[in-house]
Simulated scan of single mutants.
Amino acid sequence: MPILLTRIDNRLIHGQVGMTWVMTLQANLVVVVDDNVAEDPLQQTLMSSVLQTSGAGVRFFSVQKMIDVIHKASDRQKIFIVVPNPEVAWKLVEGGVPIEEINIGNMHFSKGKTQLSKKVYVDENDLDYLHKIRDYGVKLYIQDVPGDNKEFIK
């Protein structure tokens, strides 16, 4: 399967994802999976502009569309999936998207969340989904940028 990596980043596509990760992975397609963004042309335009110089294409799919179409992906595609939170990641895993590992890159602080790392804050709901993903056999780790050490979640 041509999925290179799945990343949880509540910012979705931004400079770090659009350049550093895409270039390091040598991805030729970034798929943002978010039900809201899939219906929001303005957000799509803004995120697409970040990828213009990377050479990668971009698609914006709802969770269900991703589940429905991933098995039709060509072997030529080198796919980098970006999701906003652990719940969406779990829905993809549960829906049969062949994800082997998930990079947790950024989850902003908000009330009720505790710090796991410099840029990752979670609440009980997030932890429940992360544990489901881990228990399903998917490797989970925190890594801000490609050169950083991976902090595996056990």
Rank of each mutant, 00 (worst) to 15 (best):
K65V: 03
Q77G: 10
I3L: 10
K154W: 08
D148Y: 01
V22L: 07
I79K: 05
N125S: 11
H108F: 11
D148L: 00
V88M: 03
L130V: 08
E94N: 11
K113Y: 06
K72T: 14
Y121G: 04
G57N: 12
V63W: 01
L4H: 08
V50E: 01
M66H: 02
M66W: 02
I104L: 06
V17N: 07
G105R: 01
V31G: 12
M107L: 13
I67V: 14
S62E: 01
Q16R: 06
I153R: 09
T45S: 07
T24A: 15
D128Q: 13
K65L: 00
V122Q: 05
M47Y: 13
L12C: 11
H14A: 14
A73C: 02
Q77A: 12
V97M: 02
V17K: 11
M23G: 14
I8N: 06
V82Q: 07
K72E: 13
S49F: 15
T45D: 03
R76V: 08
H131L: 11
L4Y: 10
F80A: 12
V83K: 04
I67W: 02
G96N: 10
G57P: 06
A89E: 01
R11W: 01
A73R: 06
L46G: 15
P2T: 09
I99T: 08
L4E: 11
Q43F: 12
K78L: 14
N10D: 15
N149W: 00
I99M: 12
V145G: 01
Y129A: 13
Q16V: 07
Q77E: 13
G147A: 09
F109E: 09
I3G: 02
T20I: 10
L140C: 03
V138Q: 03
V31L: 07
A56W: 04
V138A: 06
L4A: 11
Q44D: 13
V33S: 05
E94Y: 02
V138S: 05
W90E: 15
T114H: 07
L42V: 15
A89I: 01
Y141W: 03
Q26P: 09
M19Y: 14
G57H: 09
K132H: 04
L42H: 13
N10E: 13
N149Y: 00
L4T: 08
V17H: 03
T24Q: 15
V37P: 05
F60A: 07
I99H: 09
I102W: 00
D126M: 10
S48T: 15
I8A: 06
L5I: 05
V30E: 05
F60E: 02
T6C: 09
V17M: 10
F109G: 05
V93C: 11
I67G: 05
T24D: 15
I104F: 00
L12W: 03
I153D: 07
I13Y: 04
I81Q: 05
Q143L: 03
F61S: 01
Q16M: 10
D148P: 00
S74G: 06
R134C: 11
G55L: 11
F60C: 06
T6P: 10
V17G: 06
I3P: 05
Q115W: 04
L25E: 11
V30C: 08
V58D: 04
F61R: 00
T45G: 05
I79D: 01
P84M: 12
K119N: 12
